[in-house]
């Protein structure tokens, strides 16, 4: 496989892989419990939600944008799925009460995510809002809608069949890992082998150059935010299914973990550079770090401090290895 993706030197990729390997070896030596298969699956299951969000975040950041609403949209789609599954929805003006199958609930959750993403995309392309502002507003709106929908209470007891997508396993591998694996492979393919993927890099690298080359910049941006929304919806399903409950404040602060993973993975916040593989490594580093510090019995307060330091070190290393932009 060609490790050089869009001029990101393979050195930078190697650096983060090396850091991950060092962490794994170090934690393996320091604890008896880290290097066990149970713990390995545990880590993968834990990072699956962040990875799902981070894949969408990577695409958006490559295009030169940002999405702060992923955590809130995750909560909203999870709550919608849970609510529809549990109680269905009454449509008084039609005098009917719709009940939802599991498939129906899943489709609804994804539709909610897509709609939120479309709103982000339209605000950014049509209203010309900066992505930071548009998605910050969506964060607030989606969180508020979640609270309205749930009345502020968790929706619990969704049944084992629905729970399977978050807690089940197939061929000994947890379902969330399968699901996220498919998403990662699709996204990597989109990045490397589709015109849309190439256009993402072009728009993020130089929006004007892309526009002048005949790229439909607004369409590319709209689509990438919809994709981001859909992946937030999927993440919402994963969280809800695993907990067998939709919490109104699920996903709180997840946007920050997601951006951290993307950035640790070597994707440039200024757009135009980055990769899905890098983001997978970034998520693994955060996951291993959280897990390892927990096993080492480090206080959760310190865990946050250490995570912050890791972000600084990772990105500084990446800067060091990245090609320097030349002025003018």
């Amino acid at each position: 496989m060609n490790v050089t993706i869009l001029n990101t030197p393979s050195v930078a990729r190697l650096q983060s892989l090396l850091a991950l390997a060092l962490m794994v070896v170090g934690l393996g030596l320091m604890t008896d419990t880290f290097l066990t298969s149970d713990n390995g699956w545990n880590i993968l299951r834990q990072i699956s939600v962040n990875l799902c969000l981070s894949v969408g975040m990577t695409l958006i950041i490559i295009s030169g944008g940002i999405d702060l609403s992923v955590g809130a949209v995750l909560a909203l789609s999870g709550a919608v799925a849970a609510g529809l599954l549990k109680q269905g929805i009454a449509l008084p003006f039609l005098g009917v009460h719709l009940d939802f199958t599991i498939t129906g609930a899943i489709v609804s959750a994804i539709a909610v995510g897509a709609a939120a993403g479309a709103c982000n995309g339209l605000a950014i392309t049509r209203l010309q809002l900066p992505p930071f502002v548009a998605t910050l507003a969506m964060l607030s709106i989606a969180r508020g809608l979640t609270l309205l929908w749930t009345g502020g209470f968790p929706i619990t007891g969704l049944g084992p069949s629905f729970g399977f997508i978050g807690t089940g396993a197939w061929l000994g591998i947890p379902m969330p890992v399968w699901e996220v694996l498919v998403i990662v492979m699709l996204a990597a393919l989109v990045c490397k082998r589709t015109a849309f993927g190439r256009h993402l890099y072009a728009v993020g690298g130089s929006e004007r150059a892309a526009l002048l080359a005949g790229v439909r910049v607004e369409r590319v941006k709209l689509i990438v935010y919809v994709v981001g929304g859909v992946l937030s919806g999927v993440a919402g399903l994963l969280v809800t299914a695993r907990l067998d409950s939709a919490q109104p404040n699920a996903g709180l602060g997840y946007e920050l973990d997601s951006i951290a993973a993307v950035v640790i993975g070597g994707t440039s916040l200024s757009g135009g550079r980055g990769s899905i593989v890098g983001t997978v490594i970034g998520c693994l580093i955060i996951g291993v770090l959280n897990n390892g510090l927990f096993l080492l019995d480090v206080s959760p307060f310190w865990q946050q401090v250490i995570k912050g330091l890791v972000i600084i070190v990772a990105v500084a290393l990446d800067r060091f290895g990245a090609p320097k932009g030349r002025a003018g």
Binding site: L6, H199, Y201, A202, S206, R208, A209, L212, A213, R273
Partner: peptide, 20 residues
């Protein structure tokens, strides 16, 4: 540099950008 090329991309990727 600003409007004609995507500087982060390779020669090949710039040359094929309009005909993917």
């Amino acid at each position: 540099k600003r409007d004609g090329l995507v500087l982060d991309m390779s020669t090949q990727q710039n040359a094929t950008l309009a005909c993917l």
